[in-house]
Amino acid sequence: MGKHIFWNTLRVELRKASRSKLLWTALLLGCAFLALDLYESYINIQQAIDNTQRSEELGLGKGYLGYSLFSSWCGIAGGTYGSALFLTVWPVLAAMAYGWSYNDERIAGVYDQIAVRVGPRRYFLAKHTAVFVSGGIAVMVPMLLDLLVMALFYPATDPVYLRDCNFLCALNYASPWAFSLARCLIYFLFGGAAACVCHVAGTYLRHGVMVILTPYAILMAIESLTTMLRESIDPVEILYTLSPFQMVRTAGFADPGWLLLGTLVIMTVGSYALGYWQVKRNELV
């Protein structure tokens, strides 16, 4: 009976999330940033084709050295203006999808109605799951589209070298497509986890927009701390990064599986625990 109630609540929450205008706005904005990335990549590859034709005419050989879809799409490289923009704001996109809903429902009094019927724990777990899924979708779908659209015009040659300390690096050479799709999944998980951080704010913040920006503020603070730590230890040595901003990208730092998984668990479970603690503390029902 209890499980049945939970799944019904979850279904309702997911339906509410899918009808949220802000989820679609987040998707649209993400796609707009990555459309810019695609445009820039198209210009780059056209120039590479011109250069290749010229070098063939001069007898210097041919090939697209350094131009590989698997090394150039936004999820790996981030070497275009569009991808730089996307990779700077992805936590905001994730949170704006549905991260605001708990705070909104609490202030509007909808929370009391639902919590009386299904219980606060089931309600909050269903809300948390829906926020996770919608946040993940808001980040992953533009990424996936970027990969697939770029595959239409970018050569799918062998990817460039990845260090052994990068997660799933062996898969990068064995099956670059599987590796790229796995990176999309990592974006989904990090998008979801970042969106869940909204629940840390509880009902302290009155405005939905401040709740949406909570994960961004927290992740930026972690990024700053990581930068300070990194520079104070050894700026040359390749180090593990503790910042989700750096973790989602393979470039630059070591991101072993245990670190990715640990960060995801801390973000998701930690925000659930903190959020639920506040639900119980502010219990009105």
Binding site: E40, G79, T80, Y81, H207, V209, M210, M220, F245
Partner: peptide
Amino acid sequence: ESANGFELPIGWFFIMAGGLYFQLDHLLE
């Protein structure tokens, strides 16, 4: 020259984005 070498100057960005964050909700409230 291009976005290839882009690395967010975190100290500068923290100040600028923080300023935006702090100033955001007073008008709305």
